[in-house]
Amino acid sequence: MDISVVVPLFNEDESLPELTAWIDKVMAENNFSYEIILVDDGSTDRSWGVIEELRLQNTAIKGIKFRRNYGKSAALNVGFEATQGDVVITMDADLQDSPDEIPELYRRIKEEKLDLISGWKKKRYDPLTKTIPTKLFNAATRKMSGIELNDFNCGLKAYRSDVIKTIEVYGEMHRYIPVIAKWAGFGKIAEQVVEHRARKYGTTKFGFSRFINGFLDLLSIFFVGKFGKRPMHFFGSLGVLSFFLGLIMSLYVLIEKQILIWKGLAYRDVTDQPLFYLSLVAIIVGSQLFLAGFIAELLSRNAPERNQYLIEKELK
């Protein structure tokens, strides 16, 4: 099969018939073999009933329904597991992503041998309350990941099948799939300017909390990707640094007092100096960080996936 289109959705019953008909038209015009996987993330409207009706009209349409709302990342992860196509396209169900972009995305994945193409909605129809925070997060993600993409959060993306069968998406991490893919060893990542259409039906399902959750997930991805198999390098380094900084400060206070005594000058008791208490805090925090790293290292060494590594090719 050439293409799998994964569409996560929540309360989008009005847009589904138009979206699937549009995708079918594009696939027929380009002679693609395809499947459309609609993942209903616990909708409370008629979305699942519409999916069942569409399935009767087009056997290329497949549906997955959650018992409750788990979020877009969960919907994508389950959709990825069900795909059979060589190239996987993801898009939102609200008709803001254009299926007309699919042929070019497919061509570039195949001809340029890319792992992932992320859409860039260069001209957006979203309000400033959504676009300004998005720009800030994109800038932060570029800085932390080293991936030069302008729009990490665009729902329209294309993947080689190997990529989505390897990575795991959870929490709010769907917006950071390029980062997850890079940490998994898929570094051939490109960007493509795509059309952003104004929402035709319903209202947006995302609130301001997604930006807070997204930032926390970015930190999580960065930490796990870099130190997941060697947590002692992170906690131990910070612990040793804090411990020796506190030790140096405490020695300074003690030596200063002793020098003043030798010279017969007035001095303050060590316990009367704020620097002494700061040094104690630094020593205690350093010890705790070191112990945290030691415990994390023990857990990591006993984890069942401790020696699981992604192998691209093997000759025997």
Rank of each mutant, 00 (worst) to 15 (best):
I167V: 07
D40I: 00
I255L: 11
F32C: 09
F244M: 15
S33Q: 15
L116P: 03
A198P: 13
L219V: 09
V5P: 13
R124K: 12
P127Q: 06
I164H: 00
E256V: 03
G239M: 00
V6I: 11
R160G: 14
R55A: 08
S98M: 07
V240L: 13
A75F: 05
D2L: 10
S15V: 03
A82M: 12
S287R: 08
W22L: 04
T44V: 10
F208S: 12
F206C: 03
Y277G: 14
G187H: 09
V281H: 08
E81I: 04
S250M: 14
F215N: 05
I37C: 11
I23G: 09
L299V: 04
E104A: 09
M249W: 08
I51Y: 12
A140P: 04
I51P: 02
N213R: 10
K263I: 01
F243Q: 02
S4Q: 02
T166M: 01
I3F: 06
E168G: 08
G246E: 02
N31T: 11
N11V: 00
K72T: 09
K130L: 12
I255R: 14
Y309Q: 11
A198T: 09
G185F: 07
E101Q: 09
P103I: 02
I255K: 15
T83A: 08
P274E: 05
N11W: 00
H174W: 14
V78I: 13
F152M: 03
S287M: 14
Q192P: 03
A74C: 10
L76W: 02
L116C: 04
I261L: 15
K188C: 01
I117M: 02
T83Y: 12
F234M: 05
R68M: 11
G63Y: 10
E305Y: 13
F215A: 14
N150P: 10
E29T: 12
P231K: 05
H174E: 15
V253Y: 04
A190Q: 05
L280K: 07
I102N: 01
K130Q: 15
E112F: 13
N31L: 13
G202A: 00
D86Y: 09
Y70V: 08
L280N: 09
R210Y: 10
S4D: 08
I177V: 15
A82W: 12
L315V: 09
L241E: 13
Q192V: 01
A139T: 11
F276V: 06
R301M: 12
R230E: 12
I109V: 05
F294N: 13
D40A: 02
V270K: 03
S118L: 04
E191V: 03
I283W: 03
